[in-house]
Design a protein around this nucleic acid. Structure first.
Length: 413
RNA sequence: GGGUAGGUUGAGCAGGUGGUGAGCUCCGCUGACUGUAGAUCAGCCGUCUUCGACUGUGGGGGUUCGAUUCCCUCCCUGCCCA
């Protein structure tokens, strides 16, 4: 299959981002994990990196000071949501997303393509673009690759992303996957043509579902275009970890000689991140840690705590012993449990601070292990711990086991 | 003391004017969440031997084949008048 591999492009000297692999995968092939450093117009991003999601120009419940404290170097915002409200033109009048939301770190905007899937039945897709109804007021809207790029240029993030058509999540036939994948390839070229801002990077998106042949062709097609980075879409859905890994094992080797960052869209649970880093991914984003935090689930090395459970009402301990976050530094489990029951807003901020700190510290530990050449040991250790903590018949999506597995990682950092 | 409206599963209610009251919202319990229409959603929430069964409409009594419903009486609560 190496024959299909994309001819390596030289790094674009005009690219607004500069990505360097500091520690590449060892020659023995035990892992494809790599340590990187991405320079953006708004600071350095150490990879592998997790990007907190701030759909509406805010990481829900947090402000930029919180984000800095957590250690966020780059966050994600959403083209679709911001174009509807408050409107990208308005944001542009305020000098762009960075000044509007007072965030001086890096920003990546998602293209709105994901809404094509998440807005489900309300849409009609044709070769030119997507027509659908606003989730805010039902107004009929149309997104095309050109429109998405125009909005993203107005928003002015450091990195824009191509408008794509994610593969429908459930039981898609090969023909349906092929249609979405090939359309995404055609749209990628249109996005590239439409994108003119020189101070903004543009990433292409590889689709292909779980079909090896389509992933192969999509990788070749997208990697052949002069993007600044490559996204892998459609892999944070309802597939199993094994299916995801198998797909990454198709895509990433084709990019072995490619100098650009690889971004797996939508992944966020600790074990999933570990596996994907092992498969050679550099960038991630997910709503998971923040959403789960708002709903009362706190990630710790010993597993996941649901702070709404009665057991925590009398628990004087911090959520996680030794954690550096705002919550654990100061407050008890009992206090947080009380805040959740009383529907107090502070609960959301503190819980979000914790889960994002946990996730970013986990990434720090991963980077340290890669730098030290001990990443394979880390993977083995955490997988063994997961196997120990979950019954043999485990489905592989047991979050309890998943987070408990990160104990060693959290301790190390 | 007189009048009046009530007393339904932790709370608040719906329903029921003689023919099988376990229905709702809170509270409570548990689970889920992966490029955010999500501070959301789902299940449970009288008892038990839980695909079903049983009990339950303030207490007691009466009429009746049958009472949550009709009658008597007592208790409790709100309001009005003394």
């Amino acid at each position: 299959m190496r024959a299909v591999a994309t001819p390596a492009l030289p790094a674009d000297p005009l690219s607004p981002i500069r990505f360097n692999v500091l520690a590449g995968p060892p020659a023995d092939g035990e892992t494809r994990a790599r340590l990187g450093r991405m320079e953006t117009p708004h600071g350095v991003v150490d990879t592998p990196v997790f990007m907190p999601v701030g759909t509406n120009a805010t990481v829900k419940a947090l402000d930029p000071d919180d984000l800095h404290e957590i250690g966020a170097q780059i966050i994600l915002a959403n083209t679709y949501h911001l174009s509807l409200r408050p409107g990208h033109v308005r944001i542009a009048r305020f000098g762009g997303l960075h000044t509007f939301m007072a965030w001086d770190g890096a920003i990546l905007t998602d293209s709105g393509g994901f809404q094509v899937v998440s807005l489900g039945d309300r849409l009609v897709i044709d070769d030119d673009g997507v027509t659908f109804r606003s989730h805010l007021d039902g107004a009929l809207l149309r997104f095309t690759p050109e429109h998405s790029i125009a909005v993203q240029e107005a928003l002015g993030a450091d990195i824009a992303v191509c408008f794509d058509q994610p593969v429908p999540p459930h039981a898609s036939s090969h023909a349906q996957v092929a249609e979405a994948t090939e359309r995404t390839e055609r749209w990628a070229e249109r996005c590239l043509t439409a994108h003119i801002r020189r101070d903004q990077a543009l990433f292409g998106i590889i689709q292909g579902g779980l079909e090896p042949d389509l992933r192969t062709s999509a990788t070749a097609a997208i990697a052949a275009l002069p993007f600044d980075g490559l996204c892998i879409g459609g892999l944070a859905g309802d597939e199993t970890p094994e299916q995801r890994r198998a797909t990454l094992d198709v895509v990433v080797p084709l990019l072995a000689d490619d100098p650009r960052p690889r971004y797996l869209m939508g992944l966020g649970s600790p074990m999933d991140l570990l596996d994907a880093v092992d498969a050679g991914i550099d960038m991630f984003d997910s709503v998971l840690p923040a959403r789960v935090a708002r709903n009362g689930s706190l990630w710790t090395p010993d597993g996941r705590l649901n702070l709404r459970n009665a057991a925590f009402l009398d628990d004087p301990r911090p959520v996680q012993e030794g954690c550096r976050c705002r919550l654990c530094r100061t407050f008890s489990r009992a206090y947080l449990a009380h805040l959740f029951r009383a529907d107090e807003l502070l609960a959301y901020r503190l819980a979000t601070c914790h889960n994002l700190t946990f996730t970013l510290d986990f990434m720090t530990r991963i980077r340290s292990a890669i730098a030290a050449g001990t990443f394979p040991q880390l993977v083995r250790e955490l997988r063994a711990r997961q196997a120990r903590n979950s019954p043999a018949n485990d489905s592989g999506r047991d979050t309890q086991a998943d987070t408990s597995v990160t104990q060693a990682a959290a301790k190390g950092g």
